[in-house]
Amino acid sequence: MKLDLQNIPRRKNLSKEEFLKEYFIPKKPVIIEDLTENWSAFKKWNFEYFKKKAGDIVVPLYDGSPAKGRQNSHGVAKRIPFGEYIDILQEGPTDLRMFFFNLVQNCPELIEDFEYPDLGVKFFKKLPVLFVGGEGSKVVMHYDMDLANNFHFNFIGEKKVILYPPDQSGLLYKVPYSIVSMEIIDMDDPDFEKYPALSKAKGFEARLKHGDALYIPSHWWHFIKYETASLSMTLRSLPRSPRKIAEVLNNLLFIRNYDNIMRKLKGQKWIDYKNRLAIERTHRNAGIEH
């Protein structure tokens, strides 16, 4: 049994009008293959270049182990200089990842290496961020708390991406009071006996190579596996409708804080309770008897 996934379409010479009409407005993902070809980043961005430009900056790293007991979600595993992290990446497989490295705050000269694409979309220019991961590392299935439209540019290495639209949320074992699927589920090799609803969910997949630009619509679920050590940059377009802004505020101000408070109060019991609820709700949505 396999996940029900179709390929994300790949396009070249995509006009602004075509992008808006065919992908942005209907909220469909697409990979634009030639969007970065004229950027300096397309030629320059490799690990040695980042070592030279940002090697001394101390960065927080995260590993693949789920938070346990009274730990906050997304706890930092270690902090080391970016250059040392690059050495680790080049030595071989590691589950250490770096995310949300803000170029504006940490290394503003790198902003000169790329352009904001003319796609008819308003970008939030204070938040161009890097995502870096070691070979074999994985990012749990989730959607972004700020509900941004993401433009994900892959520059170093290769990664596998699985996407699901919001209407498939009921089949993805979404954990209550969170924006993630159950962390124990490996979407790269799911256990369909334990999590049979996944076989009913309909999604998309792609493998991103150097220069590929992936558009991930707002509220879409994404799972990422770093096939090799990889570095990507994301540009964000934030939601503008009152309904989505209200949902973002609820995510940021209530859901995240409530979850962390309950973790501190109840520890592992709270995590186990949420996971049980995720399974019960998903199986009910899928018409699966317990």
Rank of each mutant, 00 (worst) to 15 (best):
M98I: 14
E115R: 15
F19K: 04
I179A: 03
S65V: 10
S181Q: 03
N7A: 11
K27G: 10
L231M: 13
K16Q: 11
A197C: 13
K126Y: 09
F24C: 04
I31C: 02
H222R: 09
S15H: 03
N251R: 04
M262Y: 06
N154M: 04
D167W: 06
K27D: 14
M262Q: 13
R240F: 14
K159F: 03
Y215A: 15
G203A: 12
K159C: 02
V161Q: 04
L171M: 11
D4F: 08
P242T: 10
W39K: 04
N106D: 14
P117H: 03
Q168R: 14
K200Y: 11
F19W: 04
K44G: 06
F50N: 03
R207V: 15
L238C: 12
S218W: 06
K28A: 12
V139S: 04
Q90G: 05
I57M: 01
F114A: 06
K174T: 01
E109L: 12
L61C: 14
S181E: 06
K51M: 02
P26A: 06
K244S: 11
S65R: 13
F151I: 14
L253H: 02
L103V: 15
M262I: 03
W270K: 06
K159H: 12
I8F: 01
P165E: 12
P29D: 07
P26V: 07
I179S: 04
K12E: 06
K43N: 14
E18D: 12
V121N: 13
R243G: 04
L208H: 06
F24E: 05
H152P: 01
G287V: 13
D259G: 07
V140A: 10
E17G: 00
L252Y: 10
S40H: 03
V140I: 09
A246V: 08
A197D: 12
S237N: 09
I156Q: 05
S15V: 05
E109C: 10
Y226R: 06
E115C: 10
A229Y: 06
N46A: 10
P81I: 04
K53D: 00
N250C: 09
P217W: 11
K21D: 05
Y143F: 14
K159N: 14
K28D: 07
S73G: 08
F100I: 13
K266G: 01
A148K: 13
L96A: 01
